[in-house]
Simulated scan of single mutants.
Amino acid sequence: MSATMTPKNSERSAPVKHRRPARLKAYSAFRGTMIVLVVLAFLVPLAWMVMASFKTNVDIHDTSKSFLFTPILDNYSHVLGNDNYLGFVWNSFWVAFCSTGISLLIGVPAAYSMSRFNMQKSALLVLLARIIPGVSLLVPWYYVFANLGWVGGYGVLIVSHMFILIPISVYIMMSFFDSMPIELEEASLVDGLTPIGAFLRILLPLSVPGIATAGILSFIFSWNNFMFALVLSGANTKTLPVAVFDFVSYASIDWGAIMAAACIMTLPIIVIALFAQKYIVSGLTAGATKG
């Protein structure tokens, strides 16, 4: 009897086995299609920007020369040679480096304290500072910093960027410290370390991926920030986003120079992201596996 039932059972289970791979194939095709669409959505504008940086303004508006055109370097020579663009590059780097470094010095110990001592109210205040739109603070900031004589200097840009960068650092590092077992600190205290020593010698080296993630994201934000620099910077402290905006005039827009300036501004961020992507992924997902 069992021998006669075996073929029937195998015949009934056969469609189920064939149905499963079909679902997997459909899901794989859907996932691949969505990945391609997302990649194209990000790469097409970037590719258009790079190609436009090697075109004249006439060729940029000529649809027949979207892909077939004679490349020129006049836009890059105009940006790098005639408009003190390298000075603006230095301004952006200095402001981003200082604001990121100071924010990490403040944010990492603050994140450790909030994580280990359950300072939820303090964490809520930091989150509130992150949620507040920066544009709502520009007028009072300008009034205060103008009375202090800071407007137009590097200090006002660094302080204004830190208002956003410190919350970013705190929340990234809080999730990272939450994922670390408390037994590491308890063992170090048994071995004779103080709480500060345990933080500096045990937890801080282990949190390098999180610190790298917070630092990279903070640096990118500061490098790309336009609003604060437009209002608070001066002629000698102008950063790259404001310098790109200078190619827009009342009568005309130099699209070729704008694209060349944008390519120069984007290149360092792309290089940093490519070399540090493993730290970004590990840092952002650090708290996801806790428990």
Score class of each variant (00 low, 15 high):
34 M>Y: 09
106 I>Y: 10
210 G>D: 05
165 L>S: 07
147 N>G: 09
140 P>G: 11
128 L>H: 05
284 L>C: 07
25 K>L: 14
125 L>R: 11
141 W>E: 11
82 N>F: 09
198 A>E: 14
279 Y>M: 07
90 W>N: 11
257 A>E: 06
62 D>R: 09
3 A>C: 09
165 L>H: 02
168 I>Q: 12
128 L>Q: 05
95 V>R: 05
52 A>Q: 06
229 A>D: 02
70 T>W: 13
217 L>G: 09
10 S>A: 14
179 S>L: 02
225 N>T: 00
108 V>Q: 03
232 L>A: 04
222 S>N: 10
109 P>V: 02
181 P>T: 08
137 L>S: 09
32 G>F: 04
114 M>E: 03
84 N>C: 06
252 S>T: 14
60 I>D: 04
278 K>V: 00
72 I>K: 06
31 R>P: 00
110 A>I: 01
11 E>K: 15
205 P>S: 12
120 Q>P: 01
149 G>Y: 10
30 F>K: 02
280 I>Y: 11
188 S>V: 00
11 E>L: 15
289 T>A: 13
244 V>P: 06
264 I>G: 12
2 S>I: 12
114 M>V: 08
125 L>Q: 10
136 S>W: 07
16 V>Q: 14
56 T>K: 06
29 A>V: 07
9 N>R: 15
248 V>E: 14
26 A>F: 10
279 Y>L: 00
134 G>S: 12
97 F>D: 02
66 S>K: 07
238 K>L: 04
258 I>P: 01
56 T>D: 13
64 S>G: 02
163 F>L: 12
244 V>C: 05
53 S>L: 09
284 L>K: 11
72 I>E: 15
97 F>I: 06
45 P>Q: 13
287 G>S: 13
249 S>R: 13
82 N>W: 02
157 L>S: 08
281 V>K: 12
162 M>I: 03
126 V>A: 09
145 F>E: 06
12 R>E: 00
113 S>Q: 13
79 V>A: 15
122 S>A: 11
74 D>R: 01
136 S>L: 14
36 V>N: 03
54 F>V: 00
13 S>Q: 12
11 E>M: 14
15 P>E: 14
256 G>E: 02
9 N>P: 01
4 T>Q: 13
190 V>R: 10
129 A>Y: 01
203 L>G: 02
61 H>I: 06
21 P>M: 15
53 S>P: 04
93 F>N: 01
204 L>I: 05
271 V>I: 15
136 S>D: 00
94 W>H: 02
283 G>L: 05
277 Q>S: 07
138 L>H: 03
185 E>R: 13
189 L>Y: 13
73 L>T: 12
274 L>S: 10
241 P>M: 03
191 D>E: 11
288 A>V: 12
249 S>H: 06
203 L>E: 04
232 L>E: 09
247 F>M: 08
8 K>D: 00
4 T>D: 10
219 F>C: 09
21 P>T: 11
41 A>M: 15
262 A>S: 15
60 I>G: 10
283 G>Q: 03
12 R>V: 03
43 L>R: 03
137 L>W: 05
91 N>A: 08
186 E>T: 09
263 C>G: 04
173 M>V: 08
192 G>F: 03
193 L>Y: 12
208 V>T: 11
148 L>K: 14
92 S>T: 09
155 G>P: 01
217 L>S: 08
92 S>A: 01
203 L>C: 03
215 G>E: 06
143 Y>C: 00
212 A>I: 08
171 Y>G: 01
97 F>Y: 10
213 T>Y: 01
